[in-house]
Computed example of a mutant assay.
Amino acid sequence: SYNALIFFNMKQTQAEKDAVMAQLDEIIRRCQILDCKMIVVVPSMDLTVHATVDEIKADAVEVLKEMVKKVEPHGIKLSLEFCGAPSMSINRFEYAYAIVEEVDSPLVGVTLDQFHFNAMASGWDALEKADGRKIFVWHLNGTENMPCGASYNTDEKRLWPGESGDCLDHKRFADTLKKIGFDGDVCTIEVFRPDYYKLSSEENIRKAAEVTRAHVEKYW
């Protein structure tokens, strides 16, 4: 998956909206070169308007439907990644899933990042009732046990899944995804912890591959 087209929604001027679509055109061009069939789209943050959940949903649905017109001829899917921070416009699984349901296209689904799911207390009940076929990407990671919505609960608190201090219930994530029909096609690891950036690229890639393989073998 191409990660990512960032801050796609809630644009207030036509110029801003046009810039998002131009960015999408460029990413489609790159995806054709790379033979990549998935683009992750990330919601906007720090909105200047006090938009309601319903207003944000309506805007995202409209934008994603326009994006589908661009990606459909190339057989490329769009995966909406909710981001678990108070400043993000789409910050819980249930918000993202409702948007995807409203768009109602086989080309639009959700990116489930475990860190983001935990960070803003997305509802397990919502995930358990979801159609797993609408979850396109599963981002593995662990996290320190921080208060929900805390301003300091940032990407720096991510961990390799299962590392000492990791608070996530990995078995529950895997069991739930299997139960609802997630097919496991795109499973990636996303950590962003400053300590890990101290590793060389080769060390980081090797470690990430080892951790992902061990995690999948244990839970999937």
Rank of each mutant, 00 (worst) to 15 (best):
F93A: 06
R213T: 14
W220L: 14
E156I: 01
D35F: 01
E26N: 10
W160V: 02
K11F: 07
V68S: 05
A208R: 06
Q23I: 00
I180V: 12
V20Q: 09
E190C: 13
Q12L: 15
W160E: 02
W220F: 15
D131T: 06
S79D: 09
N118V: 01
V216C: 08
D183V: 05
L34S: 11
G123Y: 02
V137D: 06
N145A: 12
L34M: 11
I39K: 06
M21E: 09
V53G: 10
E217W: 00
E156A: 15
E62P: 02
A51C: 12
T52G: 15
R92C: 12
G84D: 03
F93K: 06
L107M: 12
G181L: 11
P147I: 04
C167Q: 09
L168I: 03
K77S: 14
C83L: 12
D59N: 13
I27Q: 01
D175I: 03
P43V: 01
A150N: 14
G165F: 05
A214Q: 12
V53D: 15
G184N: 10
N3D: 14
C187W: 05
V108P: 05
N3A: 13
F117H: 08
K129R: 15
F182N: 08
C148W: 07
E203S: 08
T111W: 03
I33W: 05
R172C: 15
L47M: 13
V186D: 10
V216H: 02
E203L: 00
G165H: 07
Y152I: 12
K57Y: 02
Y197M: 12
N141S: 14
I28Q: 04
L64E: 03
F115I: 02
L199N: 05
S122L: 01
T13L: 07
K17W: 03
R29T: 13
N153F: 15
A19N: 09
E144H: 04
E16M: 13
R193S: 09
H74N: 15
K17A: 12
N118R: 11
H139Q: 15
K207Y: 00
I6Y: 03
T52K: 14
G84T: 00
S1Q: 09
K11D: 09
